[in-house]
Design a protein around this nucleic acid. Sequence first.
RNA 1: GCCCCCAUCGUCUAGAGGACCAGGACACAGGCCUUUCAAGCCUGGUGCAGGGGUUCGAAUCCCCUUGGGGGCACCA
Length: 534
Amino acid sequence: MELRKPYCDRRFESTAAATLRNNGAAKGTTMTLSDQPVRVRIAPSPTGYFHLGSARTALFNWLYARHTGGKFILRIEDTDRSRFVPGSLQDIMDSLAWLGLDYDEGPGVGGAYGPYFQSERLPLYHEWAERLIEAGHAYRCYCTAERLDALRAEQRANKSHVIGYDRHCRTLTRAERAELAASGATSVVRFAMPMEGETHFTDLLRKIKPFDNNQYRDPVLLKSDGFPTYHFANVLDDHFMAITHILRGDEWLSSVPLHVNLYAALGWEVPAFAHLPLILDPSGEGKLSKRKKKGEGDEELLTHIREYREAGYLPEAMFNFLANMGWAYSPDTDLFTRAQAIARFDIADINPAAGALPLSKLQWMNGHYIRELSPEELTDRLLPFLSRASGRPEAELARHPGLPYVAPLVAERLKTLDEAWPWVDFVFQDHIVYDPALLIPKGLDAAGALAALQASRRLLAELPFAEAELDPALRGLADRLGLKPGQVFGILRVATTGKNVAPPLFGSFMALGQARVLARCAEAEKLLETRMAI
RNA sequence: GCCCCCAUCGUCUAGAGGACCAGGACACAGGCCUUUCAAGCCUGGUGCAGGGGUUCGAAUCCCCUUGGGGGCACCA
């Protein structure tokens, strides 16, 4: 079996070995990118808040850098001035920090390969565009947007197999060029893609068939506003930033031949590619970013990291969850720490198949991580959410005597932090409002409920007000009244919390304090008396 | 339409020709526990898309079909 497969057979080859071959070590190059320390990057554009899919890509890049002891770089692709969204750069940085994905080079950190904003690298792109033009690998195109639109429309109408630019300006004569340039017509720079042959490349995760060059149309390198397109800036920057591995979304796969030919025209070595599986909408229909659809239930589907943060997801849960999509830490468990993930992560283990976002698993996982928090830690994390829900300052809530009781009361009941307030609002409210009918449990009438309430209040007034005392005392009382404990507890639950579904009763009592428990019982008695009088 | 990628329970996944009548997790169902709701514990059902090969042996390798996804911009 001497047949050499173009695909990396994982049994015999490490990722590094595959990378080596991918990068042309066979050609006898003495120093290839794969000999260099790992340098990976993410290159989000500040055109919106940091996306969940971008976060997963960032996470895999970060894991690979940390696993190999390499560098993780943040580069901002701010080449589309029309789509720039103020605040999105800050959101990208905040989201990365929140997820704990620290970068070694980039905005706010610096580094030896800067600048890390593409808008600050314009001279570089212009210089190399000129070189490509001189070498005959690129040319100026004077076609208008209108012409291009009409061209595409016509191609679609004719059911043309190839849709895109017709290379009109590629064959312009020297005189025609001079005339157009002199007329002041705006132009872009296009890459002269090979019109024949095929482009071969390898991917660390998939088996790639060669692409026919003739299905590609000469892509724009430099836009008429002087900014580079993604294709150009990305190739130049990855080269000059010494990027060794490109881990990016699968949606880029079909533009790799463009990039590979650009690298070739430039005479540069091609980094290793790993195109990551896309995260699909929870329904499995389409890329997550494409449309903002409804998620499970009637909740709106969250697509930005900041939305998950605001909804009360924990960064440790988010990290675990994201790393668990397309990659698995262990066959036996889905739960793992950052350190564990770093220790085991390998590009070759990424599952190439796109997958639907398993939101219910995220909710479970978040609940799990909430329950792992100490009561003090959970209290700290809950405070901003309680404040937001109640409209009261955090400092005021922090001073509330009931606050320390809250975390243990809700920990087992939460999937997200923002669910806490409805469970414990009664602790912070001066008055509770509820339907008096709730005070009457099954099998009892108003008079019976009133009697139980009065007896309970007398008992609660005398008892040492400690959780361990309350339970046996009230059970004894129920027994003496000929009631089930659940009946008495139910009446007291409604009287003190205003709800028939609430946290455990005696913990709630402690959160309220004896005085308020007694007062609420008395109020409930009045409600029952009123009701009976009608 | 053309090109490319992908394919294991409903969903996320383990699986590297024999250790697989396919393992874990979420979700779901039943039970236990129980003062409500949860949490926790136990049990259960459900899957290798289909068809051809290769092989003594295929979830695993090859081909075809089907299905899903992505791309085809002066957006990234």
